[in-house]
Design a protein around this nucleic acid. Structure first.
Lengths: 395, 395
DNA sequence: CCTATTATGTAAAGACCTTTCGTAAGATCT
DNA sequence: AGATCTTACGAAAGGTCTTTACATAATAGG
């Protein structure tokens, strides 16, 4: 479908280089022998040797000393030269900014995490700069070395331009051109993406061969990402906004703080509210002391009937809200991450039970194992994907 | 990402052949000059000439007499040889079976349509055989000539095996191995797909560059297909089942006839019921005489206030049901086809108006222009896609 | 020290594409 | 009618790449 432009014999060489590099990548982080590569790529040995020589010269591969292990002449081993193309991932949240630098193989070279004390777009941008600087120093790299940058931000992002269109959680954030700011520092591909989308990407990469995945980020706010065969689904630009689904029985209240109806109904804050209201009628319940959503789920897991009732109601609202999505998208799994993910199996089971009556073949409902690092992992993942996409076609 | 296996110089030749053939296809049904192809493929003229010679010898292309039109030596023109790889598309509905044969360029060679008098899986299968036989005769082809078959059927289809898992509208249909039956006749790739999915594919092909499309088939039953960048989305196997979305305020009634809650609420039959109930209180309305959904919409278009109210209620239920899907999928457009599509702008406007309050950036809501032929068109489309996929990699 | 085994290097051959030049066929102008 | 222009086609030379086949290098075990 997509053909090369000049299409001479050099194209063949490029293709073979790409094939070899891809094979090395799949074997990473293990070192790989030449003979192994010929098998993996199904090319002939001289061809692979040629490609390896090129890649070695270009700095993509590193040669290791031949360790003799078995009989015969010991093979020279090769591995990815991570330093050839380190990438930067950023997780810009309203309360925390994290920068991570990873090498080509996905190995983390540096991670710097910093809480934000003062709110506001300016301070956030400053924190981004500080954190990236420190991460670069920690990895002993300069900005020029970075080959791809992906930044995760809350809100709705126009990916083509990198502009944040709508970000209620950070006042003034949509006026700031984060992508432009980063592009001024880094002379490479810069992508700005919605944080829930990137968390979804990370979840999909972890669940290998996930097919279609709906990854929900559930905390104060509610977002989701759709990953189809490893590719992030963007649609017309704002896919995954489950926070704005209007749950049954909840009237559309005036959009004051930019939160959507579902977030108002079953966001972390709303769960605590609901628990308080229920506890008021039942003072004997442990719920009376609950100050955050985690405590509610803990109480439910501990056998508190009132808490269980609350969890079930939350699960019911969630299940009813996404049932249409499940019916249309038919995801293989729903992965739940974000702050609520710490709730554990109590919530999962309740959701799965509710979904059974609402869908034809309910997907498995799982917790994200990535926890807080999901967004950063996804950002790094996307940056790496970008590098590989560019690299494999023209290394 | 996907590399060729042997990767010698011959693959270059194959790639170039594929590029040339693809270029001819894009120009179809117009005849194309050699010089044009060099431009389109960005290959050199001798290379294109070589490829054309190969394709001519293999029978994929036809050579035309040089017609002198402008100045200069008249160019020999080439076009796709449709007879090289005709495909069969089938639309197996509960009441009608249609067979269509198309050539490589998408030109229809034969279309045979037959209403089914007696219900039952047996009669349906017989009709399929009859109709395909007549279509083959009409196109003057034998079964061996067909290079790909796609059959559309109602119900839920396991695409990998071609088995129909669930087909309430045709009793006994899920016991019949349609794919196996067709494979016995045709020695080529046979695909069985859900009819709504294929209608969606057709709609996406018509709306060129559609990005993400949600195509709804709305008649007695409700189904939908999701097409993303020209690719049908299947998910875990039963994507697009909007008929089973549970609309607000409608209790889950016992699944008697296999219809889903939304179908019971706003399927064609339910619309008539609703209109009758409303008309009962307002005898002056034209609705009292409405016997089918089309009449209701016609009355609404004609200014009948009661009918307008009915349409608005239907639109509201539909909009509320798919709003979550729109939020998560963010489709560029929603295309409505099926029997209800004849309703026209009245329904569209009402839906669009309702969606505005429920979604962030509402997609455009459009009518399918394909009307009844959509499913067959989609089936042929998918068969052609199959041929091209196989052909372009190994012609 | 020699042999078996495994890995790597090198040269000739074959396949393909590209560049370059020359030729052919028709249309328009004089 | 002939000249000239435009467009299209064909053939040979040159270069790049892969493949095949053969030779060489390094190690362990006898």
């Amino acid at each position: 479908m997509k053909e090369e432009r000049p299409a001479g014999t050099p194209v063949l060489r490029r293709m073979n280089r790409a094939a070899v590099l891809d094979a090395v990548r799949r074997r990473a982080p293990e070192q790989v022998r030449l003979a192994e590569l010929t098998q993996l790529t199904e090319l002939t040995r001289p061809t692979v040797a040629q490609a390896v020589e090129d890649l070695l010269a270009a700095g993509w591969l590193r040669q290791h000393a031949p360790r003799s292990a078995a009989v015969g002449r010991p093979a020279t081993r090769f591995s990815l030269n991570g330093r050839a193309a380190p990438v930067l991932g950023l997780d810009v949240g309203p309360h925390t900014v994290t920068a991570g630098i990873a090498d080509l193989a996905g190995e983390r070279l540096a991670v710097i995490r910093r809480p934000i004390s003062r709110r506001g777009a300016r301070h956030l941008l400053e924190a981004v700069d500080e954190v990236t600087g420190e991460a670069l120093a920690m990895a002993d790299l300069a900005a020029e070395h970075i080959t791809a940058v992906t930044a995760a931000t809350p809100g709705i992002v126009e990916v083509t331009t990198g502009r944040v269109l709508f970000a209620p959680s950070v006042p003034g954030w949509s006026e700031i051109d984060l992508a432009g700011h980063l592009r001024a520092h880094f002379r490479c591909a810069v992508t700005v993406e919605n944080d829930a989308n990137l968390a979804a990407l990370a979840a999909a990469h972890q669940r290998t061969g996930a097919g279609t995945l709906l990854a929900v980020q559930w905390g104060e706010r509610l977002g989701a990402g759709v990953v189809i065969d490893g590719q992030l689904h963007r649609g017309a630009g704002q896919a995954g906004e489950i926070g704005f689904i209007r749950p049954i029985g909840h009237l559309p209240d005036a959009a004051g703080d930019g939160r959507g109806p579902l977030e108002r109904a079953i966001g972390a804050e709303a769960i605590v509210d609901l628990a308080r209201r229920c506890a008021a009628e039942h003072p004997e319940s442990r719920l009376a002391r609950a100050t955050d959503a985690a405590a509610v789920f803990a109480a439910a897991a501990g056998g508190d009937p009132i808490a269980a009732e609350v969890v079930d109601r939350v699960a019911a609202v969630f299940a009813e809200a996404i049932a249409p999505v499940v019916l249309v998208l038919s995801p293989h799994a729903i992965v739940i991450g974000g702050g609520i993910a710490r709730a554990g199996a109590v919530l999962l089971d309740a959701i799965a039970r509710r979904l059974e009556g609402l869908t034809l073949t309910p997907p498995s409902v799982e917790l994200s194992e990535l926890a807080e690092g999901a967004v950063l992992t996804g950002a790094i993942q996307m940056a790496l994907d970008e590098v590989w996409r560019n690299t494999l076609t023209a290394c």
